[in-house]
């Protein structure tokens, strides 16, 4: 299923003499991972529906360097950062939205010192703004009404950047029942993917971190585990499979919940 509308790259847009109000930074996971691509599409649909003039970098986007930095390779990180900054500055990008807390954190906090100064927001924050501005209405939506939803805080959105409210406000807008896990917000447990763990086997231990975290989620008896990070999504999905619960419990990004509820 392709998007029913055209998503322009910033190069195409500029060629038409236009410039976007916001750049959608898709991220590596959102570009290449089949599950994460669905999240990307949901974000694009929401932006399109709300008439946000947005563009993507397309082939000109490159890894922010987050996994390299967390793995300790500052060289690779800074090379990536400088190249990305050159591209972003060439297009005079001012504002960026990303659907990945790792890209969000890196672009927002670590690029400025290297010369990249942009206003960077996470997609949950942007969607909250769009609803507040009346551009996106969810009134009367039945899709998730009364459903039990729990929210898993991505470390790089929550503790790392103190964004706890935006995703929760959005779940409430769905008219759903938000059930917190025993460890949430500042005390939320990691899904196990951060710090470049996503790309390696876990060190020797007696349990996988995502299994430990999925147990927290199962305890809430929620039918949906919502999150706001493609890596958390992978880890929680695997965790749910580990308990053979994939028939009962869905793992969805906030953007997907909103797009579904708004029937986009």
């Amino acid at each position: 299923m392709s998007t029913a509308f055209k998503v322009s790259t910033i190069a195409e847009m500029m060629a038409n003499g236009e410039s976007p109000d916001i750049l959608f930074w898709v991220g590596c996971s959102g570009s290449f991972d089949d599950r994460a691509k669905k999240i990307t599409k949901a974000v694009a649909k929401i932006l399109h529906h709300c008439n946000v003039k947005f563009a993507v970098l397309g082939a000109e986007e490159s890894c922010t360097g987050d996994p390299a930095k967390r793995a300790g390779n500052e060289f690779t990180f800074q090379m990536q950062a400088m190249m990305n900054i050159q591209v972003l500055d060439a297009y005079a990008v001012k504002k960026i939205v990303t659907a990945c807390p790792h890209c969000f954190n890196t672009l927002k906090n670590e690029y400025p010192e290297l010369g990249g100064n942009y206003e960077v927001i996470h997609h949950t924050q942007l969607i909250q703004d769009l609803i507040n501005q009346g551009k996106l209405g969810l009134e009367g939506s039945q899709t998730y009404k009364g459903k039990k939803i729990t929210f898993h805080d991505p470390c790089y959105l929550g503790r790392a950047n103190d964004v706890y409210e935006a995703p929760r406000v959005l779940i409430e807008k769905l008219d759903a029942e938000l059930i917190e896990m025993k460890r949430c917000k500042t005390t939320g447990l990691c899904c196990g993917a951060g710090g470049a763990q996503m790309f390696k086997e876990a060190e020797k231990g007696n349990k996988e971190i995502n299994v430990e975290r999925t147990e927290d989620a199962l305890e809430t008896n929620a039918s949906i585990i919502a999150t706001g990070c493609p890596f958390c999504n992978t880890m929680m999905t695997d965790g749910v499979k580990n308990f053979n619960k994939e028939q009962d419990i869905q793992v969805l990004d906030i953007a997907e919940l909103i797009a579904n509820a708004a029937d986009l």
Binding site: M1, S2, T3, V7, T9, V26, C28, G30, S31, F32, K37, T40, K41, A44, V56, L57, G58, A59, E61, S62, C63, P67, Q80, M198, F199
Partner: peptide, 17 residues
């Protein structure tokens, strides 16, 4: 330019998939 072996040219594939 990605932690996995994918071509940068395929970054926009999601748009038309």
């Amino acid at each position: 330019g990605a932690p996995w072996q994918f071509s940068p040219a395929d970054r926009g594939n999601w748009i038309n998939e």
